[in-house]
Nucleic acid binder design. Sequence first.
DNA 1: GTTACTTTGATATTCAATTTCACTGGAGGG
DNA 2: CCCTCCAGTGAAATTGAATATCAAAGTAAC
Lengths: 143, 143
Amino acid sequence: MSEKREIFRKYISQQGLKLTRQRQVILDEFLRMEAHLSTEELYLKVRKKHPHIGYATVYRTLKLLAECGLAKERDFGAGQTLYEVTHRGQHHDHLICTECGEIIEFEDLRIEELQKQVAKKYDFTIRDHRLEIYGRCSKCSSS
Amino acid sequence: MSEKREIFRKYISQQGLKLTRQRQVILDEFLRMEAHLSTEELYLKVRKKHPHIGYATVYRTLKLLAECGLAKERDFGAGQTLYEVTHRGQHHDHLICTECGEIIEFEDLRIEELQKQVAKKYDFTIRDHRLEIYGRCSKCSSS
DNA sequence: GTTACTTTGATATTCAATTTCACTGGAGGG
DNA sequence: CCCTCCAGTGAAATTGAATATCAAAGTAAC
Ligand SMILES: [Mn+2]
Ligand SMILES: [Mn+2]
Ligand SMILES: [Zn+2]
Ligand SMILES: [Zn+2]
């Protein structure tokens, strides 16, 4: 938590930017959330305690957080981009329930390895990837 | 080709819809294209021979084609949805060059199998999935 | 305090996706 | 072959998220 604030502080100063009150408030509120949330959702959260902070500032701060690696932008095809806190650089992919919207995170190193093999076959240099599995979660299947 | 027209015809009639000139023109033009194309691109193609056909009709017909399984909707995160012709139900995933936009298709049954294992672990019923690998193609890497 | 910035936040703009609605035209029944 | 009805069409409007704009406010160095 505090370690992440430090990362942000350093990034801000490296870039010649300023550590403003708004940015700190937004960062704190973002770190407090778990799971995946949209700019709109974070904006509404922030707004409760700090009604003066504007949508544009939340939007720009989330971009900053993504730049410095504290946040990961996710587009699950639901019309709006979601953000999530990145935990010590660990990568993961998602199972997404199209019924109730639940998002389950998973990692599978075997799949990651096979992706590398595929890329190699086509002489392709991987920068990033996304694997999303859509369907029904256990709760929605049983009901 | 003709077989696909038949599939469309059947779907249309099953749904109590009408096989209009516009829909046939759009279907034919769509089947003639290879690779991935946007609604806009197909619209422009169609327009050349049939300037009277509107964008909304192309848009709606692509939705129909997706519904009956002749087309697959793809969102590669580039701001607009792309469509591609589905060839005899074969699934594939994509390597996407973020430099030049080239899209390479691949299938890897081992990855597909591992996805099933992951889903099973979480008691999740797979309906669909997307795996996209972003990076640089061989051409862009060498230059 | 003055200067030279950056940041903020209300608002405007963009752009694809989608909807609207008055007019048109397939297709089945006669 | 003609009717009639209801789905289809297409120009235009609307939506909604993402992003840009810009005047006012804030910040830090001089
Ligand atoms: Mn996640
Ligand atoms: Mn493809
Ligand atoms: Zn569910
Ligand atoms: Zn390339």
